[in-house]
């Protein structure tokens, strides 16, 4: 929508992306946990509010990646496709879209890895994710070193293999 030539679409979209991208995720999580119940008049629960916060927060980042991907395709490509008589929708589907997607896949994958790590922040609204559960166990058994090491290994294994996958993808498509 930021790409739109229509200001009434582009301006709110740009403001949304700018605001969300400048706020820390923890703040957004708090915000939704405390403000949404106030607005609605009844509590919504930690999971629901965290979910909404994550979706809205990450949407801003994905928007920016998608926008940058589309902007990375040269104007000349669009002109060349238009010159052969294609319509705007065809130009996007056949020419700009595929090239933009290729440019943004690595970034999208990276963002997914970041989201995965960021989920550990939900402890601030008293949700128990993997990380929080582990720290509870660590406290109970008095074995923090072991528990936190296990967590680190699990995060490392998942994130490392994910970023390896991105790398392999990039090599496969490096032309």
């Amino acid at each position: 929508m930021r790409q739109s030539s229509r200001a009434w679409l582009a301006t709110p979209a740009a403001s949304y992306v700018t605001v969300m991208r400048s706020l820390p995720l923890v703040l957004v999580l708090f915000w939704f946990y405390f403000l949404v119940p106030l607005a609605l008049g009844h509590p919504v629960g930690a999971l629901a509010s965290a979910l909404v916060a994550f979706v809205l927060f990450e949407a801003a980042f994905y928007c920016e990646i998608i926008r940058a991907g589309i902007a990375s395709v040269r104007v000349g490509q669009t002109q060349a496709a238009l010159a052969t008589g294609m319509r705007q929708a065809q130009v996007f589907r056949l020419i700009v879209g595929p090239q933009a997607l290729r440019a943004m896949v690595p970034l999208l994958m990276n963002q997914i890895i970041i989201v995965f790590q960021d989920t550990s922040l939900v402890y601030v609204v008293a949700l128990r994710d993997f990380m929080t559960a582990a720290s509870v166990v660590a406290d109970r058994d008095g074995r923090p070193t072991e528990m936190y090491t296990v967590i680190a290994v699990v995060y490392l294994a998942i994130c490392f293999s994910a970023s390896k996958a991105v790398e392999i993808y990039q090599k496969g498509h490096a032309r």
Partner: peptide, 13 residues
């Protein structure tokens, strides 16, 4: 109407 551009603008994919 055919058009040929300075920078070719072939579709790279």
């Amino acid at each position: 109407i055919g058009m040929v551009f300075q920078n070719f603008e072939l579709y790279p994919h």
